[in-house]
Design a protein around this nucleic acid. Structure first.
Lengths: 139, 139
DNA sequence: TCCAACTATATGATTTGTTCATATAATAAG
DNA sequence: CTTATTATATGAACAAATCATATAGTTGGA
């Protein structure tokens, strides 16, 4: 199902995507090495399953937001050849935020794990006896 | 960071959320047992970390979309006491879609796992030697 | 030399998903 | 007779993601 079952789009939003996953990905890449937007885009594109995170629009906007929020600093790099590039480097606030993200992502992973376990137990027991969900009356 | 660092909201969207995660959750619940919206809401609310998926607006809209897409059928149940309730039951198309979702969620979990592994390796090696990312020139 | 492809950054418009607010109605409890 | 609970639902507002497009310098080839 894709909303109203329209024509298949080039980049269908259907399916499981982690909201804002571009943020921790970028922070992690910048934690590994200070670099510029285009390079980050390349890095995302070459990571399996993250190709669609590499929309230039999202990417550059996110980097600007990071800077506004003080998570990164940027300086212009004018290399001998090629156009100028804005190089971003993580601040300590950015590192903290990355830390927070990783804790958050751990929680989300646990939720997905929980879902998968439930689904597996369902498919193992093909004839589900109608197990009534109890609803505990509050107070 | 929360967009533009505004006042804390009651249900801040910040953080890692799986886009559309209410969909597989509902399908799984309905695969376990045919039931109505309010009961599904209760079930979601009692699952840790999924409380905010239980917005009535989202929930009822999603159920209607499911029906439009042929993933569920609904019938009215008018119990001896209490207001009428629309009971949803999963169709075979719905079961297929749930299957597809579980495969998709597995992928997402793997991505999160990959992120966490990378982050862990970064924090294990506190002084990151500037490991240049190679960019393979395409043809 | 001109044109295409690549590197690099950026913004506007639109769509979709989520949240918030609110409406309805029947029943149950005090 | 008022309030709380059960139950379904819609409209408005907002946020995130996508799609489309703009720019400009560089590199390589015809």
């Amino acid at each position: 199902m894709c909303g109203k079952r329209r024509e298949p789009k080039r980049n269908c939003r259907c399916g499981c995507q982690v909201r804002g996953f571009i943020q921790p990905r970028l922070l992690l890449l910048l934690a590994q090495q200070a670099t510029h937007g285009y390079d980050l885009m390349d890095a995302l594109r070459s990571t399996a399953g993250l190709e669609n995170l590499a929309d230039p629009g999202m990417l550059y906007r996110t980097l600007r937001q990071f800077e506004e929020a003080g998570l990164v600093n940027s300086t212009w790099d004018t290399p001998a050849r090629g156009p100028a590039r804005r190089v971003y480097q993580l601040t300590s606030a950015g590192r903290e935020y990355l830390e927070w993200w990783s804790a958050d992502i751990r929680k989300t992973r646990d939720q997905l794990e929980h879902f998968l376990a439930e689904y597996a137990s369902l498919t193992r027991a093909p004839a589900p006896s109608p197990t009534k969900r109890k609803k505990e009356k509050r107070k």
